[in-house]
Design a protein around this nucleic acid. Structure first.
Length: 418
RNA sequence: GGGGAGAUACCCGAGUGGACAAAGGGAGCUGACUGUAAAUCAGCUGCGGAAUGCUUCAGAGGUUCGAAUCCUCUUCUCCCCA
């Protein structure tokens, strides 16, 4: 593979490289010296949540590895220890050393699903930040000006909106910059929200006599809601460890406009083919739904690759999920695997059970009030038959046993009675 | 150090003694339409087997027949001056 092909591969889906031709220069240098580039990615050791959005960055790192480069993951244990109170109202609880350690371990094991463990170096920034004494911190701080720090978009915004900014938050960019110096990074990956931090790393490296790192920006994958970035806390995510069926269902629910991003960032389908697929569906030559099915299958193939079963049949999880989806949504049938909802014996006191009790017990409604609304709005059915729009409805116990409960368009459960 | 403003439900935000479980918007949920897309339309969105019931407007007290609204203290934030 020549350098231009490498560049094309590495630049796929990126949102920018600073400086513009920096990556090419670094790659050329690495080829000449035979020294792998050191690619840095910093992570907060908060609860690990490896989803497709995060996988975008990891997959990019994997590409670097496949080209022979070294990935350095920095776990921000020290910064997490201090606790990050950013965010408008709630102060985030500080993480204990124990939690950080556990989270970090979970992280590393999850990262291995995408990264090549042999070409991944994991470092904790407490290693160097923990040794920093006050004088060194002051020394470090003297290399940045307030005006410079306030250029950072989110600081500027919060300042403008009169939102609180804690003093130590201003130190975060410095800490991150120091990370780059400590590991002598050649490239730092991050979202554009990291622009300032990564560029601070360049400045500091230069001041420390190192060759400044390249900033490689990856776009934030938009979550299932189509508006906010994908994140676990927002609930708009597809986890890479989720089952094929769940992934499939979630991916089919994204809006058409998001398909291109998902194709480019989450699959290996050639850019030319993506253009073709989307052009066809836009022109009405193909159904957008089918393009989306292709998308879902491509993504599932990455995390649930085909395998050969014990009786030497080839199983393609994505195809199974696709068939299942078609069965449920095109044919209106019931899923093969549906979660059991255990109805406690304490609810069954007579011949019948109040429908709302069933819904709350099955976890389909948070409260009886919500359950009543669902019933009234015609959102509940049992064994394919819509429950009467009566919030007081009583259901005979016999009708509940092993019945399929459906709430809304897509939530199913099999009722299990004692 | 001094002065001023503010904290309302998931988010933004109205409300300044009773008609307030609290306007409006966003978000979410349900239904219709569909391709489990988007857009659109309609309804719902504290708890409660439902009551002139219970808990909620930063926290704790107080005034009052009655408080999100008034008073005191506490916590947190923003602005201006130094």
């Amino acid at each position: 593979m020549d350098i231009h092909e490498k560049l094309k591969l590495l630049k796929r889906g990126t949102q920018g490289v600073v400086p513009e031709n920096g990556l090419e220069t670094k790659l050329a240098k690495s080829e000449k010296t035979g020294k792998p580039l050191r690619i840095k990615l910093g992570l907060d050791p908060t609860a690990p949540d490896i989803h497709l959005g995060f996988a975008v960055v990891l997959r990019k790192l994997r590409q670097f590895q496949d080209l022979g480069h070294q990935v350095v993951i920095i776990i921000g244990d020290y910064t997490a220890l201090i606790g990050d109170p950013s965010g408008r109202s709630a102060t985030r609880p500080m993480l204990s050393a124990e939690e950080i350690k556990n989270n970090a371990e979970t992280y590393v094991s999850q990262l291995s699903r995408i990264l090549d463990r042999d070409k991944t170096e994991v470092r904790f920034n407490g290693e160097w930040l923990g040794k920093l004494d006050f004088a060194s911190l002051v020394q470090l701080a003297s290399k940045f000006t307030v005006a410079r720090i306030m250029e950072r978009e989110d600081f500027a915004r919060r300042f403008g909106e009169r939102q609180p900014i804690s003093l130590h938050e201003l130190l975060y960019p410095l800490a991150q910059a120091l990370d780059s110096v400590a590991i002598e990074a050649d490239v730092e990956m991050g979202g554009q929200d990291q622009t300032f931090n990564i560029l601070a790393g360049r400045d500091l490296q230069e001041k420390e006599g190192q060759e400044p790192q390249i900033a490689l920006f990856m776009p934030l994958l938009v979550g299932l809601d189509g508006v906010k970035k994908m994140s676990k806390s927002l609930g708009n995510y597809v986890g890479i460890a989720e089952t094929p069926d769940v992934m499939y269902g979630k991916l089919m629910s994204i809006s058409d406009a998001m398909m291109r991003d998902y194709f480019v960032l989450c699959t290996d389908v050639a850019l030319e083919e993506i253009d073709l697929l989307l052009a066809d569906s836009e022109a009405g030559r193909s159904n957008p739904k089918d393009v989306k099915r292709r998308l879902a299958r491509e993504i599932i193939d990455i995390y649930h690759p085909p395998f050969v079963s014990e009786d030497s049949a080839t199983i393609i999880p994505s195809a199974v999920a696709d068939a299942e989806w078609a069965r449920i949504h095109s044919a209106g049938e019931v899923p093969v695997d549906l979660p059991d909802a255990i109805i406690g014996s304490d609810l069954i006191t007579g011949e019948t059970v109040w429908i709302c009790r069933v819904l709350t017990a099955a976890g389909m409604a948070k409260s009886n009030g919500e359950a009543q609304r669902l019933v009234q709005q015609g959102g509940v059915s049992l064994n394919g038959v819509k429950v009467a729009l009566d919030p007081k409805a009583q259901i005979p116990v016999d009708d509940l046993r092993d019945a399929v409960l459906k709430v809304g368009a897509r939530r199913f459960a099999r009722l299990r009675l004692p």
